[in-house]
Design a protein around this nucleic acid. Structure first.
Lengths: 132, 132
DNA sequence: ATAAAATGCTACCAGTTTGTAGTATTTAGC
DNA sequence: GCTAAATACTACAAACTGGTAGCATTTTAT
């Protein structure tokens, strides 16, 4: 019950970039700040570009900058792009069928517990992280 | 952001066993009810025995039964045994250090969102699943 | 004793994720 | 034009997870 490394890295990268929202960030510079394995970070950056969160500028003096305003980038979108985000409340543990009676006794407990996290992630933007 | 298969399987196995709390359950019987890949289920069962949730009886007419009362087995314990459960609120995404200022602005959001799930998992026992 | 029925153990396989290496491509500055 | 600095691409390696196979061990029933 945790995020994948790729998701963690993506969130770290984007939240760090958002501190200087309008600047161009190079992979090298991000590496020095975040210490994410350089080549892997490189790949994640191009993935984030393909996903439309940031845009890349190639060549000398190139780098990455936001493709859209950070107050329109929700955390849930980022997670969705990196690892999928299927939190439909089918059953607590993602079972196809419940292990107990049907409907499974866990349903209500699970839905409630999941709701606040879902709500938080899908209502918080990168801009909120700076201002909150 | 989901449970591992092993965690899902473990929860299904134990919650199913708890429906007949005092009986001896064979791997074969559990397989027929739960359709978890047989050999993998076997391995999970021995792991659950090693973790102290159940005990195994070898030989003919052997099987698995609970090693302690199901009203003392919390869901969080099971998850902790199968995939680790480090939800200490160090930082939202499990960072060693925050990506933003310190203390990270996400802390409060994350802790709040996480709290209801944590509370639920660490206050619900296998016995509760039957009675709730 | 022996066979059957059960768990235990070890090794292996496949797919995914994480990480590394090298090369190609693009662009700015001189 | 050439070089340096940057991203893009491709291939591979390592580690982890999920799953399979076979044999070993233990115990009961006959």
């Amino acid at each position: 019950m945790k995020f994948s490394k790729t998701t963690e890295y993506s969130l770290r990268i984007l939240s760090h970039m958002s501190l200087n929202e309008n600047e161009l960030h190079s992979a090298e510079g991000l590496y020095e700040h975040l210490k994410i394995p350089k080549k892997y970070l490189q790949r994640i950056l191009t993935d984030l570009a393909r996903s439309g969160f940031i845009q890349s500028i190639r060549g000398r003096n190139g780098g990455f900058s936001f493709a859209r305003s950070i107050d329109k980038i929700y955390l849930s979108e980022i997670i969705n792009a990196t690892e999928g985000f299927d939190w439909t409340p089918k059953c607590m543990f993602g079972f196809g069928e419940c292990a107990l009676d049907s409907p499974c006794k866990m349903h209500d407990l699970w839905v409630d517990a999941n709701q606040s996290m879902l709500t938080m992630l899908s209502s918080t933007t990168l801009a909120d992280l700076k201002s909150k």
